[in-house]
Amino acid sequence: MHISEGLLPAPLWLGGYGITALLTGWSLRLLQRLEKDPRRQLPKAALLTAAFFVASSLHLPFPPASLHLLLNGLLGVLLGVLAYPAIVVGLFFQAVAFGHGGLTTLGINAAIMGIPALLAGGIFRAGRRPMGAGLAAFWAGAAGVGLAALLFYGVLMAALLGEGTVSTQAERLALGSLVMAHLPLAAVEGLFTRWVVRFLQRVQPELLGEDAKR
């Protein structure tokens, strides 16, 4: 779910950089306010970012092709406010190493993945007590993908409508149905997030507990 270089008009990708600058600045400022030594969190965030970067290469068969997991909801659950900067860094390396996404679209791609990650973290922290960690993790994972799909196609539609490329109702319907096609993926990602969180509860609850206190 990356927007490639050159697809978007300037106001959209510049706006994406604006949103990313604001949210990254807010995340880092909040981290500095909450932690006595904010650098203490950086190795953890960096290694988890690297682990997410690697694990998101996991492909699930979906004949005739395959789909890969986004894991932005899980990133929000584990990293809290640091999820947004971690996504900026992860997308930067994806653009640099593989040409996925791009440098001009880094800001808008970070907003598409990072805003749902922050919300997923909020859903998990707000819901883990009343719903239980498993169910809260499911909704966090599903919301991460669902909202990212909505933002992705919203941005794409804005770009295409602005250029007059998508004009007929049938073309809009085709793009809208692509969003609907992501709903099963949201359910799978929700289940996956739930299983990972339950695994971490058994093996390393500290990884969930420390961040959940924020």
Partner: peptide, 24 residues
């Protein structure tokens, strides 16, 4: 398949987290 893969990702996260403490 999915719970197995989730456990594999969880293991990778746990190892990364433990290593991050030593790195710090």
């Amino acid at each position: 398949d999915l719970p197995f893969l989730a456990a594999a990702v969880g293991t990778l996260l746990v190892r990364s987290y433990e290593r991050s403490e030593r790195v710090y």
